[in-house]
Simulated scan of single mutants.
Amino acid sequence: MPQNKQILLDSRPEGEATASNFKLVTRETPPLQDGQVLVRHHFLSLDPYMRGRMNESKSYAQPQPLGEVMIGGTVGEVVESRSPKFSPGDKVVGMGGWQEYSVADANAPGMLRKVDTTHVPLSHYLGAVGMPGVTAWYGLVKIIEPQAGQTVVVSAASGAVGSAFGALAKARGCRAVGIAGGPDKCRYVEQELGFDACIDYKQHRDAQSLAKALKQACPQGVDGYFENVGGMVMDAVMLRMNAFGRMALCGMIAGYDGQPIPMSYPQLILTNRLRVEGFIVSEHMEVWPEALKELGQLVGSGKLRPRESVAQGLEAAPEAFLGMLKGRNFGKQLVQLV
């Protein structure tokens, strides 16, 4: 069995996470038991939710245990199988974690899924045609429920969730407006992803200034908002929400270091009779097949052209992860392991 490099969570962050919270080790891969498969990971997904798991505080999921391999989505290839369900050479997506190989139970529901790379590149099963894409789909289709002609807004628009949200919204005849950080990201959102407009939040020092820019981009107001950020950005969008607007809350990257995130205008929830709903996509597995089918068609047809930031080698994962939390990535953040 191969030697396996792994990255463990070595300590809990105090405030900002740092590279010293992680530890690189090399271990023997255990021999396979009946019903197990050995997967060599080609790509590792880095996602904002991992930052919350590093804390010991109460959240929607159990904290990442100290001394264990960091949680994370992976795509790769089966190299050995003791299960009739998988054969060597099969391309699979799973939750293999921050390591080069994983041993998976082929009979555990949702542990491993075969994927077809004929029209969709393997790495996209961690982004547009994976958990981030389904996250965008659920927030748009099940919470925002837009009608054709309505205006929807998404923060972190150039990222894996935001880019999928835009393509899904345009497919439903909506006006799609993004919020992103920097002129390069905004150009990508408008020119390559096909959004109707994108606002650079870095050009605005407060919610009132950002809300003025939103008024120009959304002359009919905002009917639906997908939240990835929180803080000033959320305040600004709330100032532009229409009556009976819907807000899908999935990320609060402004607060991942554990500081409170004040909300400046909570009275608008009442004034505008807003529907505000938080959700975790792993609690809605029943929609994944439908969502993945549509997302695969969008990528395969070229209507969704996701962008990726790719770090090389497992050793690069901690710094790439910390950079993603500060918005240094452009599109889906991955680590290439093969």
Rank of each mutant, 00 (worst) to 15 (best):
Q99V: 04
Q216C: 02
V129A: 12
S301I: 00
N55V: 06
G94V: 11
P262M: 06
Y201I: 00
L239M: 14
P88E: 11
P306S: 01
L304G: 02
E100G: 08
D90V: 10
D184I: 03
Q267T: 12
G130C: 12
G149F: 08
V93R: 15
F279Q: 03
D200C: 03
K202M: 12
V79C: 05
H124R: 07
P289Q: 02
P289G: 03
Q297S: 11
M285E: 14
L325F: 14
K303H: 14
E100L: 13
Q191C: 00
M232N: 02
R113K: 13
V141K: 14
R187A: 14
C198I: 10
L46D: 12
Y101A: 07
R273E: 11
V229Y: 01
R275F: 09
P31E: 15
A236E: 04
L193S: 03
L304R: 04
G255S: 11
E277I: 01
L168E: 09
E28C: 01
T18F: 06
N242A: 01
P109G: 11
G162F: 12
M54A: 14
P88N: 10
T29N: 11
R328P: 00
I199H: 00
G139K: 08
K215L: 04
N228P: 02
V69P: 05
E319W: 01
Y101K: 08
A157D: 09
P31H: 12
P146S: 11
R305E: 04
I144K: 09
N242D: 03
T271A: 14
L24C: 04
D105A: 13
Q259G: 08
M324H: 06
D90Y: 08
E14G: 09
S309V: 01
G130Y: 07
Y49R: 08
E190D: 00
L292E: 02
V103P: 07
F279W: 00
Q147Y: 03
G15S: 09
G73L: 13
V115D: 11
M95F: 13
T29F: 09
L44E: 12
V222R: 08
G52M: 08
A19V: 15
L239H: 01
D90T: 07
E227A: 01
D196A: 14
G166W: 06
E56Q: 14
G224E: 07
P318D: 01
G133D: 11
K202S: 10
A311K: 07
M50C: 12
R53W: 15
K5N: 14
C250W: 06
V120I: 15
C198Y: 06
M70Q: 12
Y225E: 08
G296V: 04
C250E: 04
E77R: 09
F226I: 02
H284L: 01
E14P: 00
V129P: 02
G313N: 00
Q62K: 13
F321W: 05
F86Q: 09
T118H: 12
S209Y: 06
P318H: 02
P13N: 13
G89N: 10
S309I: 05
V233S: 04
R246S: 09
I261A: 01
V153C: 02
A254D: 10
G149L: 04
K114Y: 06
E190R: 15
